[in-house]
Design a protein around this nucleic acid. Structure first.
Lengths: 205, 205, 205, 205
DNA sequence: CATGAATGAGCGTTCATTCAT
DNA sequence: TATGAATGAACGCTCATTCAT
């Protein structure tokens, strides 16, 4: 069963309909509660169509991870693209990234559920890793941009990579669990301050 | 049927056996893959005993969250207790806390899986919240200690609470997904540096 | 396990409490839906007490049939006792009997459910037959009374027995299923008319 | 899953096989004792097939009530169809009706069990009512025929409807519980006499 | 290309009952 | 006499999947 029936126009549309339905189910019922039956009902195309287009339950989720995670990363990429001014890259960049991240809570919940499932589910891991790697790449790109503009880091590069990703993911978890509280916003603001201080323009430049 | 056990000696032992089996299952198979059948087999007491002692699958998980999460927080509390020297509280404190956290990967994976499930599963939320609140309390206690010894914060208190919890959880997620890499250790070290800089002893003290 | 723990005061009271609870369950949930668990909950004495006092589920129902059916027949007997005037026996007698029958719908539903179950359940049959026989005896007594006062029947005696019992039971079924409708009342009135005409005082008496 | 079958040839046959098996189980074990397992075994198609074709246990019984009850009413209808002579309608009509009713005791027991269950089981009521209504319709038709042929009633019409139905059902209950005794036959004969007397051809006709 | 039909395995839960004081 | 502890069996149902067209 090929990953997706890439063929017909109709096929593509239907596959997308199913993925969207699966996303809603994941956000509502979690991974454990999202059965083929439910996705079939939610999409109004029937359980059978889901199996037809994605081969199996894991096949569906593999696809969903890529699509859902891909959308998330795309939004993040879009949000930080075209920031030219050096100062903006950390200051505005992070602000816009957070807006992008929290623009669709369902997406976030679905993505987080699948990521966690991937820890204990070998079948899901490749897809989950693919997305996390894209995420890392976006962060790496932002740091590269800053470096290219003459800023220097005050910590070893890999440590910064890890710290940014961990910080963002920790904040996302907080957001997903408790919503958008004032305290969370303060925390984010301070995280941005930290990020600003992590690099600087050397005196002689 | 609320947690029948806790009565006889034997009952207590058996309930604990089951909780440990459930923990292993959760770490190996995740929440979705942890059925009563599997827990019953893993504990060698049979599915029926699991239901008898915990009333239902959700009843079991509620209990497991509290026990598993409780152990985690206990370990963390133990690790930071008895740190008297002001400087230690952030420097040594965090180091020891991290050691405690990562001393049992299975515990961590099980806890993370249940936490994520709690996002979309109302029945699990109370237990999950109870543990997260205890975690917050430990962090708050650490900060209180630092303040009591004359240190002053360079950011608003709630923001720091959020940032520490988010940082730790983000790092845990990184650890759970990719294991204990050198980069992760560097990141943790830098996080500790950040925590040290977040407060200071005022000049006149 | 003796039919009932006939011993202590308390034991008797508790057994009665349980029978009443079982009656409510039967009227609400039917025979299939009335489990020991539910009776134990309804009586607030716990499942275990039910088993203790009645030995088993069938033991309970055997007892309930006798008590419940007994109450019904008692009420019917009471209602027709002390009717001395010949004319009353059929006219007033049937009216009062119907009032007695319909005075407690729950009793009726429970009794009917157990009777039907007894058709396919050997364990219940003796008790059910015992009650039906008492019912027949009441009807026989009424007819005997009428005959003793000089009336003569216009049909063979056994046929009348059957017809009265069938009529009453058919009307009860109608009542249980559709409630106390005007049509039902008309039917009952006509049944009484039929009963009045079934015997008469011979001209020379 | 609403009565999936009715599609393929094979499906229709299998559904019918299952219904027949269910009927045998109901007549032998009663409603409470008729589990999916038992029906699956009895039909030799397995429990799973039963669920597949009828969606659920209640779905099966809903279907069975309609089929079983339908057969009963069909037999009754057949038995009284084509009676043209006015006198026959009550005299022969009732005789033949009774023959039809008692031609299949299992059918009768199954139907009675389901009817009784319907009193306390909301899910079964619609189907049970549907059949009872058909039964009423047959009786009404018979009375209409008599009236159309010039006979006049000696009691109000609705009362007669109720009385006939109650009489038949009471006699059926007697038959189901005690079998075909001479006394029952006498009772039936007298019931027929009563029915004959309930209407008459007016003198001037 | 797409879908109805069908199924085996396993789910979580509840049953009536027995054991051991 | 009374009751907690414990259990095997079966319950109705849903799962992901394959077959056959």
């Amino acid at each position: 069963m090929r990953t997706v029936a890439e063929r017909s126009r109709k096929g593509e549309q239907r596959a997308e309909t199913i993925v969207d339905a699966a996303l809603r189910c994941l956000a509502r019922d979690g991974y454990a509660g999202t059965s083929l039956q439910r996705v079939g009902d939610e999409s109004a195309l029937g359980k059978r169509a889901v199996v037809y287009y994605f081969g199996s339950r894991d096949g569906l989720f593999d696809h969903v991870v890529r699509v859902v995670g891909g959308r998330l990363v795309d939004q993040i990429e879009q949000s930080v693209l075209g920031l030219e001014e050096p100062a903006d890259i950390v200051a505005r960049g992070f602000e816009r990234m957070w807006e992008a991240i929290t623009s669709d809570r369902a997406l976030l919940v679905a993505w987080f559920g699948l990521r966690t499932e991937a820890i204990t589910n070998d079948g899901l891991r490749p897809a989950a890793n693919y997305i996390t790697d894209r995420m890392r790449a976006v962060i790496a790109m932002l740091i590269d941009n800053a470096l290219a503009r003459g800023r220097v880091l005050h910590m070893r590069r890999p440590a910064l990579d890890v710290l940014i990703l961990a910080g963002i993911q920790g904040l996302i978890l907080e957001y997903v669990e408790r919503g958008s509280t004032p305290d969370l916003h303060d925390g984010i603001a301070e995280f941005r301050v930290f990020l600003e201080g992590v690099s600087s323009v050397p005196p002689g430049a």
